[in-house]
Write a protein that binds this DNA or RNA. Structure first.
Lengths: 336, 336
DNA sequence: CTGAAAGCGCTAACAG
DNA sequence: CTGTTAGCGCTTTCAG
């Protein structure tokens, strides 16, 4: 049906191995022969079958990317960075949405393993059981994690200065004169979020001027931010500033605050985390801690690619990279 | 290195073909034998090599998805729908970002073809040359397009009622008493956008009450919407309502209008198109034409999957599905 | 019901 | 520099 290496060989009067060599640019082929073969391949519109190639070489030139949900703008940005890096290296990536469901995640892992991907990038394995994590580690292929989970040092990982970001937010709000603040977080177990909170608390505590922040937990979503704010406003109207664990929570917060008749930043200051594209567009434009989302994906994929190449050699110690964050001042904060 | 079908065969004292049959649930295997084999496979933690399987069967159980940019929330929604449908069918999808660059897109197509994907979903081929389109059509694998381009009927496609959406927007604004309106569009060649515009124009013309809408073209982005609005406001302040070709353009529009001191909806009404998640969150919440993004991806993938199965049988006439849109009324429009 | 054997299309020694 | 020859791991006739 499709034209194979055999057809090219027959048509150009050489052996298939010569065709293979010519096409893969391996050394040791007469220039003329090579050119003739290439011409024939082109004329026949030959397309090498990478599946066969993969079977023979044991390399698929395919990487897996498991995120919780690609619709989350944070992940679509990360995915784009990862995909670009893969494209650059001539590989492609299969996209998996785990919804943070451990079972689903493991099924994806199995599927990727069976497809013999060269490596995989995975969002978070915090929800996996110890046994599942070990199973993953035992798979033998390179894996890099997109957020270092608490205890697992067995995998390479990339993450950002969550703690430092919290400190940044705290100090900024402190400078503006705020003394009674709150931290609106996601689920309690979320590692990155709690780091952000700890940094924030540390900054306030260290200043010696502010009260301990009120901490609320809910879903890490618009709805969650909205709910937490409702709750916050009903229990403590003395608060003048709040730090949201991510931008989307901040959006919910802003909405709830506005509905309650509060003006931002006059009545309430808010700082987010992530710096999603929408944050600059929103009204008021959100002051937030920017993390390099695209860069995270790109760097993660590059780490992964490097490992897939070093394969075998020096089982390479897991590597951990932490990228910087920065405070982006816009218009959602005012003086206390 | 990895455990293969041979190991399972040896370990369970049968031939590899029996193992294959047992594991694939083909009929004609003694129940006991099958169970024993399965047990052994499980004990050995055997993972079938799908690459080898693919080579033998000619099926990869992998589909390609080419979008312009996964960061575009419209596409991440579509991608999720597509991925869910694929997952449901036991397939996985490789993600490609074309940036609408014809060359890049063709390279992705080649790559997918070489990987022997069972089919592909592609965003738009409007930018491809006639020759490239033919090349695509000749590839022999099922392809479904995510927006029917003007002239190409050779491929299956899925799209939405763009024209009808324009009519909906026009009629709604008309009802509110608007008579001088504008349409903020993207690049002139964008097929879906011009359909939206045509529907809008038609509605106004048919009413016999409104002036012909002013039409502006620019980039289909926040920046584009912002620019067009600046231009609009500088040349015609009599306009009371505007229809944006998509929500993101509407965001830019709102921002520019607010900066110019206009209140929405009191001074200017705006209707968008898409109904992105952010549109409900924005201030003011955007009235817009909703198109079923997730559903588009899901349905497109289902069409594709159906075609990959019917393979060979009745070269199946290209199929075209058009999904409905609906007006979502929120708070960005007022009476003229 | 099960085994033997012939590939799927390509790569990679190994000869020549 | 090029041809021969084994496979890669699995499916699939074809016999038995």
């Amino acid at each position: 049906m499709a034209v194979t290496i055999k057809d090219v060989a027959r048509e150009s009067g050489v052996n298939i191995s010569t065709v293979s060599r010519s096409l893969n640019g391996s050394y040791g082929v007469n220039k003329e022969t090579r050119e003739r073969v290439i011409a024939v391949a082109h004329r026949l519109n030959y397309r090498p079958n990478r599946v066969a190639r993969g079977l023979a070489t044991g390399q698929s030139n395919t990487l897996g990317l498991i995120v919780s949900d690609i619709r989350n703008p944070y992940f679509s940005e990360v995915a784009r960075g990862a995909e670009d890096a893969a494209w650059h290296a001539g590989c492609d990536v299969v996209l998996c949405n785990s919804d943070l469901d451990p079972a689903k995640q493991m099924r994806y892992v199995s599927s990727l393993l069976e497809k013999r991907v060269d490596g995989m990038l995975v969002n978070s394995i915090a929800d996996l059981s110890k046994r599942q994590q070990e199973q993953l580690a035992a798979s033998g292929i390179p894996i890099v994690l997109l957020n270092r989970p608490a205890g697992v040092k067995a995998f390479s990982s990339i993450s950002v200065e969550n703690y430092e970001g919290g400190v940044l937010a705290g100090n900024y709000l402190l400078e503006l004169g705020h003394r009674k603040m709150a931290f609106l977080s996601g689920p309690k177990r979320h590692g990155s979020f709690s780091e952000r909170g700890r940094g924030f608390e540390f900054a306030l505590a260290q200043s010696g001027k502010a009260a301990e922040p009120l901490i609320l937990n809910d879903d890490q979503s618009f709805a969650g931010g909205y709910q937490m704010t409702k709750q916050l406003l009903s229990q403590d109207r003395a608060i003048t500033a709040v730090f949201a664990a991510n931008d989307v929570i901040a959006y919910g917060l802003i909405r709830a605050a506005m509905e309650a008749g509060l003006r931002i930043p006059q009545d309430l200051s808010v700082v987010g985390f992530d710096d999603l594209e929408m944050s600059a567009i929103l009204h008021p434009p959100l002051t937030t801690i920017r993390q390099p989302k695209y860069e995270i994906g790109r760097a993660a994929m590059e780490m992964l690619l490097a490992r897939t190449k070093a394969r075998g050699r020096s089982a390479a110690e897991p590597e951990h990279r932490i990228l910087g964050v920065q405070l982006v001042i816009r218009e959602s904060c005012g003086r206390a």
